[in-house]
């Protein structure tokens, strides 16, 4: 395209963009928020959404398909799958959120140390991050679980630690960009000290994108935690955890598809909704 054509296109795009309203929630974002609200209520007060006991067995009613009485059907011990999915929300959500918090916390720590610590520290942290990046995140999590031993706490820790390098990179880059900005220079000229600049300019401008990153990260963390449970490394079988339920249903997939499909659907939907919402937050914070 010639320079002229580029300009023509850019002009048209610009008029298009300025024409649309800016701060309206999309239909998708509203749906995502509603679904996450459902999961949140399920996590906090599962009894509200499903009065039946997720652990109550009824061998006479095993493998019954979805029906009006039991909308998600029952599993091999006759347990109500809907009830188990609702009660499983808590552990999935707790693992997802705590893993993200751990990942972000570690990421901020490493990123800030690298971004502010001077050349030698920056070099060291960067090489460490590169080593961690060389391993796929899930593999790193598996490795950690092998070292510490399986369990819910371990899963959370492992997922948190394996997501930390990504956050650290983003924070370091952002910090370096802000540090060399003209407004930090202007504050130096005013005679402001390092700590004041850190508190007033560096941290707020670096950490602002974290809210969006965190929302995006929760979805990913839930998928990872479920994956680990699926492999039998997370929550222990009788307790209703989505990944574990998915694994339990796998054996009966040809005869009782509902045992795997519904927990799987919830994992996917939660991750997708968290991502949709995260993108929305990201767009809004960037616009300012």
């Amino acid at each position: 395209m010639s320079a002229l054509e580029v300009e023509a296109v850019a002009d048209r795009l610009a008029t298009h963009r300025s024409a649309g309203p800016r701060h309206r929630f999309g239909f998708g974002e509203i749906l995502a928020a509603l679904f996450l609200l459902f999961v949140l209520v399920a996590a906090i007060a599962p009894a509200l959404l499903s009065p039946t006991d997720p652990l109550a067995i009824d061998p006479g009613d095993a493998f019954s398909p979805p029906s009006l009485a039991q909308i998600f059907g029952t599993d091999e011990s006759g347990r109500n799958i809907y009830s188990r999915v609702v009660h499983g929300a808590a552990s999935s959500l707790v693992i997802g959120v705590s893993a993200t918090v751990i990942g972000l916390g570690l990421g901020v720590l490493l990123g800030v140390v690298a971004g502010l610590g001077g050349r030698v520290v920056d070099f060291g942290v960067n090489r460490l991050l590169e080593v961690l990046f060389a391993l796929p995140g899930l593999l790193l999590a598996l490795f950690l679980i092998v070292v510490i031993g399986p369990g819910v706490v371990t899963t959370t820790l492992a997922v948190g630690i394996s997501t930390a390098p990504g956050y650290a990179r983003i924070i370091r880059a952002q910090l370096i960009a802000v540090r060399s900005s003209a407004y930090v220079e202007a504050a130096t000229v005013q005679g402001r000290g390092r700590w004041w600049i850190l508190r007033r300019h560096l941290l707020p401008n670096t950490l602002a994108p974290l809210l969006a990153l965190g929302t995006l990260g929760v979805g990913q963390a839930i998928v990872w935690a479920s994956a680990l449970s699926f492999l039998g490394l997370g929550a222990v079988p009788p307790s209703p955890e989505w990944g574990a339920m998915l694994a339990a249903g796998r054996t009966y997939l040809s005869s009782a598809w509902w045992m795997s499909v519904f927990p799987g659907l919830f994992i996917v939907l939660t991750a997708v909704c968290a991502t949709v919402l995260g993108r929305g937050v990201q767009r809004r914070t960037r616009q300012r």
């Binding site: 900005s181 003209a182 407004y183 220079e185 202007a186 504050a187 130096t188 000229v189 005013q190 005679g191 402001r192 000290g193 007033r200 300019h201 707020p204 401008n205 602002a208 300012r288």
Partner: peptide, 30 residues
């Protein structure tokens, strides 16, 4: 540091010399 207030600076691109989060009130207040 304590003597830096003797000297002020004005830049070619004022916009980039302001923290984008801050209002005029905060910029001057700082």
């Amino acid at each position: 540091g304590p003597h830096r207030r003797l000297m002020g600076a004005i830049y070619q691109d004022p916009l980039s010399s302001f923290d984008p989060r801050l209002s005029v009130r905060d910029i001057l207040g700082d």
